[in-house]
């Protein structure tokens, strides 16, 4: 139904089984990923003068009639997603799981990077993977071939993973304590930026076969990220990609964003990436102990 990216009223599947929807109050709405939130204390506004909207927008409430009343809500639109994200984060800390949310456009080499990373890390920590794609379980199959457990979330026509999907995926997996959990988000440089999944860090992967101005074109994602992996650097001799310019643009959006140049297929830069994982894993564990 979405004319831009195809987001639509569709069914979410986890390991090819439909994700259970908690409540469907209207049959016409088949896409209801969130369940009702716990009771909130909504204050009825009796005195119009106490309504913050009145002060901010004098004259804009002309259509309010004597039959209607104003109710103050004051809630984040993503409150429900954020509640699930907090729940996921508590689960991760209770089991000392270090979770990374991997974000990129399609075709940046995320799955190849993951396969290589798992092969290099698997003797150090237990690894688990949640794969997000609109359709197919090809990526989860590639991950499982490494021996790491993987759950595939198919978002149908949805363009991002949300925290409730991760909650359901976690219920279907057994993740060992002290694991590193990689969540490979749907390939998309826009929508996943807004949805906290409960991860410790967001990692953005940009490949040198894309334009160096991607950080300027998709600033929200680069703003939200904690690490930029510049992938496919083995191809640089064949391309006109200006690495310095790409990093400069990324730093305009997010000046403190660390950048690691890698080639997942050739292995260059992979050690720096694994060191970053280890340093952040220790820092997250240290923060928990305090």
């Amino acid at each position: 139904m979405c004319t831009t990216c195809g987001c639509g009223l569709s069914q979410i599947r986890i390991n090819n089984k439909p994700m259970r929807i908690q409540r469907q109050s209207h049959q016409s709405l088949t896409y209801r990923p969130l369940r009702p939130s716990p009771a909130q204390n909504h204050e009825p506004i009796k005195d119009p003068a106490s309504n913050p909207l009145k002060a901010k927008n004098p004259g804009r409430r002309d259509h309010q009639t004597s039959e209607t009343r104003m109710i103050k809500i004051e809630r984040d639109i993503l409150a429900e997603n954020n509640r699930y994200a907090t729940q996921n984060r508590h689960y991760f800390s209770a089991h000392r799981i270090f979770a990374l949310n991997l974000l990129s456009s399609p075709g940046s080499g995320k799955t190849t990077l993951l396969v290589q990373t798992i092969q290099m890390l698997r003797n150090l920590y237990p690894i688990a993977v949640i794969e997000g794609d609109q359709q197919t379980d090809h990526d989860a199959t590639r991950i499982r071939a490494t021996g790491a457990p993987a759950v595939q979330i198919n978002t149908g026509k949805g363009c991002h993973l949300d925290a409730a999907m991760i909650d359901r995926a976690l219920q279907q997996m057994h993740i060992e304590n002290n694991s590193v959990l990689f969540i490979e988000n749907v390939g998309n440089l826009v929508c996943p930026a807004s949805f906290d999944l409960g991860e410790a860090h967001k990692v953005i992967i940009l490949s040198v076969t894309e334009g160096e101005d991607k950080p300027l074109k998709y600033p929200d994602m680069f703003q939200a990220a904690d690490l930029l992996l510049l992938n496919k650097c083995d191809l640089l001799p064949h391309l006109t990609f200006d690495t310095g310019l790409a990093i400069e643009y990324a730093h305009r959006i997010n000046p403190s964003l660390p950048v690691i140049q890698i080639s997942a297929t050739h292995g260059s830069g992979m050690t720096a990436w694994l060191e970053w994982i280890e340093a952040c894993r220790r820092a997250t564990a240290g923060a928990l102990r305090q």
Binding site: C2, P36, I77
Partner: peptide, 28 residues
């Protein structure tokens, strides 16, 4: 692009509020 999810979340907040505050129609 994720505005569909946001619209769904908005509707969810409205339905939660309706249960608490007992209203049957939303004007704005």
């Amino acid at each position: 692009m994720h505005e569909l999810s946001l619209a769904e979340n908005i509707l969810q907040l409205i339905e939660d509020a309706a249960q608490q505050q007992h209203f049957t129609q939303v004007e704005a």
